[in-house]
Every structure is written in structure tokens, then in C-alpha cells.
Design a protein around this nucleic acid. Structure first.
Lengths: 152, 152
DNA sequence: TTGTTTCCGGTGGGAAAAAGTGGATCGCAA
DNA sequence: TTGCGATCCACTTTTTCCCACCGGAAACAA
């Protein structure tokens, strides 16, 4: 599974070089077939191995078009999802629509989140991390029961 | 199935060029025969492969004319539906009535939603997406049980 | 320990192919 | 006969694929 943040660069054509340590796994699991979409909660992109994405998609199609919140979620996730393929140098080409959404230019961060990756603009990632830690330490975030019983 | 948003342009004659990656599928499934109508929930158009549309249509005819909501839905969908055909350059000609409804001019977005497409004016789509994400992140939307148990 | 060599990951550029765009001609109808 | 519309064709732009180069790191040898 995917862990950790790697600094990566996006070239002028919009190609993102996947760190070498992930490549073999990705080829094994999905022949380099990936799906990128927008993250509903953060100004970044989500990158799934195709089979993993299809699992999520099969849940989304059960959502009702007459529930506004469910419709919105379907719309955002499916409406931005693009199928991508690694080239033989281990790079994926991000379409302009997705790059624009996450404000990606040269420097980016690929963040492993077990079953998927997040793709952040480097600057946004730094800000987001700092902000999250601040919230955390100030104790303003609500705690679910699950969290209260978590030991690190 | 159809996913993702693609920026497309509508030429002065009102022709919309379908992105190349969808064309083969559309020719296979319906020989380029499509149906466009208005989206009851959003200021955009819906574009179905003909067989897919016929499935929906067969459900609509069972709707009662004595239930105001069912009648309205029938009216909107059926009353605006137009049969369209791709030309050999992969373009479909949108009738002025439909273009007007979605405020389509030069720049548009073709948004895949699995069994159908949405056709948005580019500006409207940007606004719609931004507004939805804002609502989402501010946490003001009501959450169904299905949503609460969804993990991305 | 230090220098040299080799391999691998990362990067950029260029060429071929395909897709998008606009124009022109043909036909039909008014 | 003229105007509008539709279909077809050709040109330009974009995209995609592939190859080559550069830099760094590691390994081996002196």
C-alpha cells in the first residue's frame, strides 16, 4: 500500500513522474492504469489504481439523483474522473482541467494514502499541513468516539 | 462508461466536437445516434446514447399524469428531447433551442456521468463546481446514511 | 579511502500521427 | 434564382509516443 509524501516535479507538458518505488506495484496491480479525480475535501487531486477506483464507482452509482447531497458527490467525483496511463518512463499526463483545479505547476507533492494518492501543489501542501497541525494542537477539532479511543 | 470533464468548443454553426476517446464507444453502442435533452436539476444539457435514452423513456411513459411531480418530469425530459447524429468528423449539431437553454456559446464542458454526458457552458460549470465544493467543505449539507459510510 | 565506471532514475526535446477547426461546394427548398 | 443548411474536405494545431541526454548514486577496484 502507499505511504509517505514525495516531492515531484511536473514538466511543461503536464507530465508527472511517479517515484520509481511505486512503479512496479502499479504495473502489477493495474498495468499502469490509473484514475485521477478531484478531492472533495481538499484543493488537491486523488489518484487511484483503476481497480480501486472501480470499487468506489460501483458505490457511487447506487446514489440517488433526487438526494441533492448524493447527487453533488456523484457529480463532482465522476465528473472530474479521468483515466490515465503511465508511459514507459513511468510518467502520467495530467489533463489541463485537473491541473487547473489543484493549482499544479512545477513543484508538487505525491502523498500516499494507503489505497490512493493525493497530488498537491507543493505550496498548498505546506500550508495545509501547517494549518491542520495548528487546529489539532489548539484542540478545536471535534473528537469522535473512535478517535478518543485511538492510541498512537 | 463515460467519466471526466473535457473542455470543448462549439463552432459558429452550433456544432459540438465529441472528444476522440469517446467516439469509438459511441459508434459501437449506437452508430453515433444520440439524444439530447435538458437536465431537470442543473442549467445544462444531458446527452444519451440512443439505447440508453430509450431505457429511460420506457420508464417515463409509466409515470402518472395526475401526479404533478411525475408529470413535470415527463414534460421537461420528453418535451426537450432531440435526436442527434454524429457527423463523420465526430461532431453533433445542437439545435438552437437546446443551446439557448444551457447558455452555450463558444466554450463548453462535456462531463461524463457514466451512462450519459452533461453539456455545460464552461463558465457555468466552473461556478457550479466551485459552489458545490464550498458547500461541501463548509459542512452545511445534510448527509444521508449512505454518504456517512462512504470512504474515498 | 578515494577515484573511476556503470547503471538507473529523472528530464527534456523532437517527430509522427491524430484530432480540431474552418472553409468550400453541393443540394434542396423557398 | 437565391439563400440557407448540410456534408465533405483540407489545413493547422495539438497530442502522443519515443528516444536521447544529463546528473547522481552506488559499487568496485586500486
Amino acid at each position: 500500500m502507499f505511504r509517505g509524501a514525495s516531492g515531484i516535479s511536473i514538466d511543461p507538458k503536464g507530465r508527472l513522474a511517479v517515484p520509481a518505488r511505486y512503479r512496479e506495484v502499479l504495473v502489477d496491480r493495474c498495468q499502469g492504469q490509473l484514475v485521477a479525480t478531484v478531492d472533495p475535501f481538499n484543493p488537491c487531486l486523488l489518484l487511484y489504481p483503476l481497480p480501486e477506483w472501480e470499487g468506489l464507482e460501483s458505490k457511487l452509482i447506487t446514489f440517488s439523483d433526487f438526494d441533492p447531497t448524493e447527487r453533488a458527490m456523484k457529480n463532482i467525483l465522476l465528473g472530474h474522473a479521468r483515466e490515465l496511463e503511465m508511459d514507459n518512463a513511468g510518467r502520467v499526463l495530467l489533463p489541463p482541467e485537473l491541473r487547473g483545479h489543484a493549482h499544479l505547476d512545477k513543484k508538487a507533492m505525491l502523498v500516499g494514502q494507503l489505497n490512493k494518492f493525493q497530488i498537491w501543489d507543493d505550496e498548498q501542501w505546506q500550508k495545509h499541513t501547517a494549518a491542520t497541525l495548528d487546529q489539532w494542537r489548539s484542540g478545536t477539532l471535534p473528537m469522535s468516539e473512535r478517535l478518543k479511543s485511538l492510541s498512537l
